[in-house]
Nucleic acid binder design. Structure first.
Lengths: 196, 196
DNA sequence: GAAGATACGGAACAAGGTTCCGTTTTACAA
DNA sequence: TTGTAAAACGGAACCTTGTTCCGTATCTTC
């Protein structure tokens, strides 16, 4: 069978360059608008900013949620990896957990409106909820388990509910000077601890 | 000036009976739909259920938020009054605070989607946010102050941020068996305490 | 019963997400 | 180089939701 000895001769047509270019343009435009006016920037504006029609957005990102995920994927992954790095570091498990939570909160608070979309039924944002939690629940669970093993944290909290709680606390965290999510999160961390 | 000796002769025309009837019908329909499918039931459905046109809804309730407030006003007021009752009761200030918070959480969790609307900028729900907080912040502050005076609670939390935090924790509390707001709220209460 | 104030219904508008489809562009091979 | 089919494109159009407007119907009052 002398059919496939060449180094991957494009058995499949290669991706069109305009498609690649547009995807990049869309990601850039979305990142720009999300930063400037929050994650709720209308699809039409993103398309316009990228110099592209709405149809094109939907070919690349079937849903608004997918676009949001694509924009933040890197940072979410990084947050997940931070967990392993902290666990390998010198800090106590509880300290590691705290540092991780603070980083997570910073991330959410920085992105206007992101926290709103984290709940399971946020309109059609299911994909977003899924991606975030698929990546972050294990990361958080590792930290939580370590702290639990060290007897530094209560046993009766799951990573999922803890993450959702922290996420919820971040909702609306930038619209209102009277409300600072971090203070509430710290209260939760305090309640979580077994010390004192 | 012998002009106003009669016992309030309708100096002003009395309210039309159809208007009164419709307002009641609307409140009933809204309560019904809110209970059945959450606070996000579309205006048109409420109007249809009440046997009334959409225009009529807006004459009685200038905004969706006003309708929601009207439906829940009684329960919010009751929640506010619970505060005074608890403070006058035999429980310690901290215990009173806890009981009040649990009642508040029960209220929010029971009403699908209500907690979502509590943040300041929830689309056009400003009226709702205002009413809830105008009533509940003082109630909560009283409990918090009492517990603080008794040295049972940390000093560095305001009633506003505490309420918003608890409210946020209740978001999405019924859509997902894996997330129970009450556990997180209890963690906050634990962190708030000075005991142990 | 007439008159005028009040309230009503629902078409129409705005804004947002999403779908559809005729047209254009591109990759590949002859 | 050029022909051709696959792949992408643009943007009008659709749907849903909140809200506004105004011609019409219904009450209250005298």
């Amino acid at each position: 069978m002398p059919t496939d000895d060449a180094p991957t001769p494009p058995a499949t047509r290669r991706r069109r360059t305009d498609a690649q270019r547009n995807e990049q343009a869309l990601l850039a435009a979305a990142a720009r608008l999300f930063a400037a006016s929050g994650v709720n920037a209308p699809i039409r504006e993103i398309a316009a900013d990228a110099g592209v029609g709405v149809g094109t957005i939907y070919r690349h990102f079937p849903t608004r949620a997918d676009l949001v995920v694509a924009v933040y994927r890197y940072q979410v992954d990084e947050c997940a990896e931070l967990s392993t790095r902290l666990l390998a570091g010198p800090a106590s498990p509880e300290a590691a957990l705290h540092q991780w939570v603070w980083a997570f909160v910073d991330f959410l608070v920085t992105k206007h409106g992101l926290a709103d979309l984290l709940r399971p039924d946020s309109d059609n944002m299911g994909a977003l909820h899924d991606y975030f939690l698929d990546r972050l629940v294990p990361a958080c669970a590792a930290l939580l388990d370590a702290a639990r093993s060290a007897g530094e944290v209560r046993a009766d909290v799951t990573a999922y509910e803890f993450l959702r709680g922290v996420g919820n606390l971040c909702i609306g965290g930038t619209d209102d000077a009277r409300y600072d999510p971090r203070r509430l999160v710290d209260l939760v961390l305090l309640g979580l601890g077994t010390d004192r």
